[in-house]
């Protein structure tokens, strides 16, 4: 121990003892927690979520189906545990009161939220009533498989982006607040794909339970299993303030992922997914200043991440 160690300890402790405590901090904390919950959905809706939807064909590392009990012939699949996993300190819920069957709070035609803080990007027709409800049900089914009773309700679902890919797939990306099981993630984002002559499927579902600035990455896969093709479309939805979305393929250098960003923060671009064990393409999201030193996000396609990492 050196003298400056002692001086530091003394200074810090002296200062710390001068801090008065609040009489009842709990009320403020709970109020703040409620605010965070409300803000999460708004943040996701305003671009607080970065979602990457790589619609690749028959990625061999992705198998299984989110429609666990009835896998659709010809559809791709993702094991929910690959993308939505309980936190390290948690395990799937086993609440005796929870129902194993998902329930829908509404099957009525979708209603446009009265307060739409997010501007839907892409083709509006894709987020129409039938597609939205189908996505809602599939999200809730996938959640309930891990956390009985967990569901996303219609009024808590916010479509973020919709597009028709070059292979005539409908792709819809949305975020929703989860209710019904406190052990489930509070917020999830998902990508939904409907291929021609095949039932719609959920190809990615991620825990985005954090405040604005959190990042979530999807790696959906769709198409014909066994085709051998790994080409697809990647969709990146950056948070507010996004100025540039870059892509780096294995062995290559950073380059803009798309010529133009949709709505200032969404890029859709073709991508080839690597075979298992190979280097995965990287994406990088920069702010409006193009600050390379502090990217809003930088990481591989295909892995769910939490940002900031807490």
């Amino acid at each position: 121990m050196t003298p400056i160690d002692d001086e530091l300890r003394t200074t810090l402790r002296d200062r710390a003892t001068q801090v008065p405590t609040s009489p009842d901090p709990l009320a403020g904390i709970e109020r703040r927690a409620r605010g965070i919950r409300r803000h999460r959905l708004a943040a996701a809706a305003t671009g607080g979520v970065l979602a990457l939807a790589a619609i690749a064909v028959a990625v061999p590392t992705i198998s299984g189906s989110l429609d666990a009990d009835k896998p659709a012939p010809g559809s791709f699949a993702v094991q929910p545990t690959d993308t939505v996993a309980p936190r390290d300190t948690a395990s799937p819920a086993t609440s005796p009161n929870a129902s194993a069957s998902p329930t829908w709070t509404s099957t009525a035609p979708p209603q446009v939220p009265t307060v739409e803080t997010w501007t839907y990007a892409g083709m509006n027709t894709i987020a129409d009533g039938a597609n939205r409800i189908d996505m809602l049900q599939k999200m809730s089914q996938a959640l309930a498989a891990h956390w009985p009773g967990a569901q996303v309700t219609l009024e808590k679902l916010r479509p973020l982006y919709g597009v028709i890919s070059s292979s005539d797939q409908l792709i819809l990306v949305a975020a929703g607040e989860v209710t019904g099981n406190p052990q489930a993630p509070a917020m999830v984002a998902a990508a939904w794909v409907k291929s021609p002559n095949a039932p719609a499927t959920l190809v990615g579902l991620h825990d985005i339970d954090a405040e604005a600035g959190q990042v979530s990455v999807f790696v959906p896969a769709a198409g014909q299993p066994g085709s051998g093709s790994r080409d697809g479309t990647a969709i990146v939805v950056g948070r507010a303030g996004t100025g540039e979305i870059d892509l780096k393929t294995p062995g290559g250098s950073w380059r803009p992922a798309a010529r133009d960003l949709v709505d200032g923060r969404i890029a859709a671009f073709p991508v080839t997914m690597p075979a298992a064990g190979q280097v995965v393409p990287q994406i990088r999201v920069l702010d409006g200043d193009g600050n390379l030193g502090t990217p809003l996000y930088e990481g591989p396609i295909g892995r769910g991440v939490t940002f900031p990492d807490i």
Partner: peptide, 17 residues
């Protein structure tokens, strides 16, 4: 501290240890 505890509050049921 309040911000951190609010986040902890939301995650409380998932913190086992």
């Amino acid at each position: 501290v309040q911000a951190a505890l609010a986040k902890t509050y939301l995650a409380w049921d998932r913190i086992r240890e």
